[in-house]
């Protein structure tokens, strides 16, 4: 299980390929890539800055991936999140899950993203046409994360 928090750009295709490399027991890989958009809430976005809480970020992601491993039979799980300055069109986050069968991979990927969005200490500040603006948390993200605590 790998967790990386980095300023450098990455290639999502290479990350996907690495998830099944050297393990022919992997029957399914599911991945999610989040990108910087060029608009948000009706405003043009020319870029963003991603702040995080060094130390806690890695711990929070470690806790989330450990919980995913407990809940589903996973062969590999990778979380990669960028910090610092990003431009529209660039990947921000990658979550990749490898398992023997697709159901576990789909569910674990969805779970990790929902928890990452509500529990990992990252904050986006967008450069918009109306000036710099901190992105506000969304209630829908909390509702999505809440799905995983129901019996």
């Amino acid at each position: 299980m790998a967790i990386r928090v980095q300023e450098a750009a990455f290639d999502p295709g290479a990350e996907v390929n690495a998830l099944h490399a050297a393990n022919v027991g992997v029957g399914a890989v599911v991945s999610f890539v989040g990108y910087v958009r060029d608009f948000n809430e009706g405003r043009e976005v020319s870029g963003m800055f991603l702040e995080h809480y060094p130390g806690m970020t890695e711990k929070a992601l470690g806790k989330i991936t450990a919980e995913a491993q407990q809940r589903w039979p996973l062969l590999k799980l990778e979380v990669l999140h960028r910090v610092g300055s990003l431009e529209p069109g660039e990947p921000i986050v990658f979550v990749g899950v490898a398992s023997a069968h697709r159901q576990a991979a789909f569910e674990a990927c969805d779970f990790v993203m929902d928890y990452l969005k509500t529990r990992a200490p990252f904050w986006k500040k967008e450069n918009t046409s109306a000036g710099p603006k901190w992105v506000e948390g969304r209630e829908s993200d909390h509702a999505a994360a809440g799905r995983w605590t129901k019996p």
């Binding site: 989040g34 991603l50 995080h52 809480y53 806690m56 999140h81 921000i92 986050v93 993203m113 990452l116 969005k117 509500t118 529990r119 990992a120 200490p121 990252f122 904050w123 986006k124 901190w134 992105v135 506000e136 948390g137």
Partner: peptide, 10 residues
């Protein structure tokens, strides 16, 4: 101890 607004990563 840390105080912060709602997180917005991902």
């Amino acid at each position: 101890v840390a105080f912060f607004p709602t997180v917005t990563g991902g």
